[in-house]
């Protein structure tokens, strides 16, 4: 097997070397024809990718790594396959399309082999080798794709978190964060950071946290909200919380937090009125004096 494998590898290597351009062109065309692509990658990008993969296959085949471990162990080949999958993941391709695209190279390689030999046994061995090689590559690209996708999802959820906690300027020197949906610790921290940064950027005197859209909070989140109020004051601004619903009031009360030092209003409109009133006064905040009229 080993001698025949060597000769088959040599044959394939030769085909790859002699027909490099042709194989690359054919593969790109095949992908475009089969419309398995479903990405917005253009022909030029595909061609570049094809050149890289073919070059990596040549390096891999020229090494002495056995074919079954070639894709997973040969550094350049492995890296090229991983990069290909990640690039396509970012371009929006599905994992199936990506691994099918890699597998379609089989067809092209076998066609190329037909030009170098007519011997049935040799062609069969070549087919087995090409199959093993590219099945491994297809599997690796699928695996990488899924992992890469996970990263994208995590990143997007972080971005979503930023988006879902917008800090808006309601009035001169008045900012508001309307919070909607369930608050967890991570999101509350993002809110706090964005709000304080907004205060600095806009030189805001009053920050309104509207929690009308928050169904309930746990004790950790209530604690974070109180932290936010305190941090806002340390920066020299005032904080108004509006839209506290009964269950949340209950949680806050159970925490033993003294609400008398926090300015609260039933609605965002009331809070804005209070905020505008506050901005007419000297802009100093002291943690010893209860805020509010």
């Amino acid at each position: 097997m080993s001698t025949s494998e060597t000769s088959v590898r040599d044959g394939l290597l030769e085909a790859l070397r002699e027909r490099e351009q042709e194989i690359a062109d054919r593969w790109v065309r095949l992908q475009l024809e089969q419309s398995t692509l479903d990405t917005d990658m253009n022909e030029h990008e595909l061609r570049e990718e094809a050149d890289l993969l073919i070059s990596a296959l040549r390096t891999g085949l020229a090494s002495d790594v056995p074919v079954e471990r070639l894709v997973t162990s040969q550094h350049e080949l492995r890296r090229t396959v991983i990069e290909l999958s990640l690039r396509r993941a970012r371009a929006g391709a599905t994992p199936t399309a990506t691994s099918l695209a890699v597998l379609s190279l089989k067809e092209v390689l076998l066609e190329a082999m037909q030009h170098t030999t007519r011997d049935t046994a040799e062609l069969f061995s070549a087919a087995v080798l090409v199959n093993r090689l590219l099945d491994a590559a297809g599997a690796l690209s699928f695996e990488t794709y899924v992992e890469g996708r996970e990263e994208i999802i995590q990143r997007q959820s972080r971005q979503l978190m930023e988006l879902s906690t917008p800090v808006v300027r309601l009035w001169h020197h008045v900012l508001a964060v309307p919070l909607i949906g369930t608050l967890d610790t991570a999101r509350t921290q993002v809110v706090m950071e964005n709000l304080l940064q907004g205060i600095q950027d806009h030189e805001a005197k009053v920050a309104i946290i509207d929690i009308t859209g928050v169904p309930a909070v746990d004790t950790a989140v209530a604690q974070h909200l109180m932290h936010t109020v305190n941090a806002v004051r340390l920066m020299g601004a005032d904080c108004v919380i509006s839209g506290i619903r009964p269950p949340i009031a209950q949680t806050i009360a159970q925490l033993g937090i003294d609400l008398s030092t926090i300015l609260t209003r039933a609605t965002l409109a009331d809070a804005l009125a209070a905020a505008v009133h506050l901005t007419d006064q000297p802009s100093v905040s002291g943690s010893y004096s209860p805020a509010g009229p």
């Binding site: 706090m192 950071e193 304080l196 805001a204 340390l234 020299g236 802009s283 100093v284 905040s285 002291g286």
Partner: peptide
């Protein structure tokens, strides 16, 4: 400000201003 609050220090009695 965030760190100070988490540290548990409120700067009791200290008046603050934005700038």
């Amino acid at each position: 400000a965030i760190t100070l609050v988490e540290l548990g220090l409120q700067l009791t009695g200290v008046e603050t201003a934005l700038n």
